[in-house]
Design a binder for these strands. Structure first.
Length: 430
DNA sequence: GGGATACAG
DNA sequence: TATTCTGTATCCC
């Protein structure tokens, strides 16, 4: 096909080290200093900018092992501020969608778009998208363009690696010898959809590079692995085998789980934890307009704890689908009968709601409908919290207004500068 | 259908 | 002292 022929192309756009970019956007005083963002509970590094990478910091490193080094080197460190990142992400996605024929938000910082264009047009468009996002939102992105999602991701990665491309890579416009070199030197495990296990197994079969994978037998891959990996192989060959997915309005399950800043050892404290987590789950159900048929709760020690890993869980089939905070709390409290308290130091707990259905799908006249549910307590609580703040209302053990001691650590949190009036950035004009 | 596994970001 | 959280798809029984 001639380069000037219009074709359906997939654009993959992602925000360069998204969380650190958001932190810099709202705090220019960071300047050129390196930036790290930590996971929930300030546990490990989950985002680093180029300067921090140059200093040798690595994704996933436990914070306590590098804390000293970061301080010595004058690195800016932040707890993760998902409210900020979510808002910036939303602005990016709105803009991207306006360019797209089909659109899929893939994660908080990535999206796929389809656009029909010739290769030269695609290059111009990709650059325009990048510049538009820099100007109108203020975040840096890279754009990869190719015939399939997998190749578009690979093109994006290439755009990041090769500075001369200045953040934009149209795969089919690359010189063939460059593509060849890239495919033969890149390990198969670098490809989207090939995880560490898959890469190991492939290596055992002599499939080491992306080129090997691209040329592997479809039948063999299908048989020894899965349809998923077979689709990946097709996509490497330029065949669209993984379609853009429509936005999922309703989820299949929702989980609310957190690690504790301090271990929980008493039954009373765990009761309080479960009560709060169950109410969080109820809130999320109300927000998405769904009800749960099944709720499970679990608590566990740290995987690295001396004395071995301990976990307790319980599944409760609800008498009728519900989002009711009281019913969910009571169900989750059944976990307390299964867990042992005293010697065991629980490090995390969680609540999972599943068997989800849209609220109102079961008729209100259903004789099995729960009386709580017909009164929509979850929706009521949700709307009150929306109006009066997240701490305005709580049920039972979860109703306390103060921060409990076990609540996750976020000691280096930035301001939520785009979503809360009280936390607006301040500009000083001198 | 349920549980285990793999994967992603 | 200590290593995130959330969600989906597939395989296999």
């Amino acid at each position: 096909m001639c380069a000037d022929t219009p074709r359906t192309l997939i654009f993959h756009v992602d925000i360069n080290s998204c969380y650190t970019s958001c932190e810099k956007l709202l705090d220019p005083s960071i300047g050129n200093r390196p930036v790290l963002v930590l996971s929930n509970n300030d546990g490990c590094i989950i985002s680093l900018d180029a300067a921090a990478k140059d200093l040798g910091f690595i994704m996933g490193q436990p914070w306590f092992t590098v804390q000293e080094k970061a301080k010595e080197l004058g690195v800016v460190v932040r707890s993760s501020n998902y409210e900020l990142y979510g808002d910036i992400s939303h602005r990016v996605m709105l803009l991207l969608e306006s360019y797209a024929q089909e659109f899929e938000q893939y994660s908080i910082d990535e999206a796929f778009l389809t656009i029909t264009a010739s290769l030269p047009q695609a290059r111009v468009l990709a650059r325009r998208i990048k510049e538009d996002l820099a100007r109108r939102v203020g975040v840096p992105v890279c754009v990869g363009v190719a015939a399939s999602k997998t190749l578009a991701k690979l093109a994006n990665r290439t755009a990041k690696k090769i500075p001369a491309l200045r953040g934009v890579c149209v795969w089919d416009a690359l010189p063939p010898q460059r593509v060849d070199a890239l495919l033969s030197t890149l390990p198969a495990g670098e490809i989207w959809g090939v995880g560490s296990r898959g890469a190991q197994k492939l290596a055992g079969m002599g499939i080491l590079s992306v080129k090997d994978l691209k040329e592997a037998s479809l039948g063999l891959i299908r048989k020894r692995f899965s349809v998923v990996l077979m689709r990946t192989v097709l996509e490497l060959r330029g065949v669209r085998a993984i379609e853009l997915e429509p936005e999922r309005v309703f989820k299949d399950q929702m989980m609310y789980s957190r690690s504790f800043s301090d271990p929980v050892t008493s039954e009373d404290t765990m009761r309080q934890v479960l009560s709060i987590y169950a109410q969080r789950a109820s809130g999320r159900l109300a927000k998405s307009g769904q009800v749960a048929g099944l709720v499970s709760a679990f608590c566990s020690t740290s995987r690295y704890a001396a004395g071995g890993f301990v976990r307790a869980d319980v599944q409760v089939k609800l008498p009728a689908p519900t989002a009711d905070p009281i019913i969910l709390t009571q169900a989750c409290a059944q976990l307390l009968e299964r867990a042992t308290f005293g010697a065991v130091r629980y490090a995390k707990a969680g609540v999972v709601v599943s068997d989800l259905t849209p609220a109102g799908a079961t008729a209100l006249l259903d004789p099995f409908a729960l009386s709580h549910e017909t009164r929509d307590i979850a929706g009521l609580v949700h709307s009150i919290k929306e109006k009066c703040g997240p701490r305005s209302l709580g049920v039972g053990y979860g109703g306390l207004a103060q921060s409990p001691a076990w609540e996750m650590k976020r000691e280096m949190l930035s301001r939520r500068g785009t979503t809360h009036w009280a936390e607006l950035p301040v500009a000083v004009i001198k």
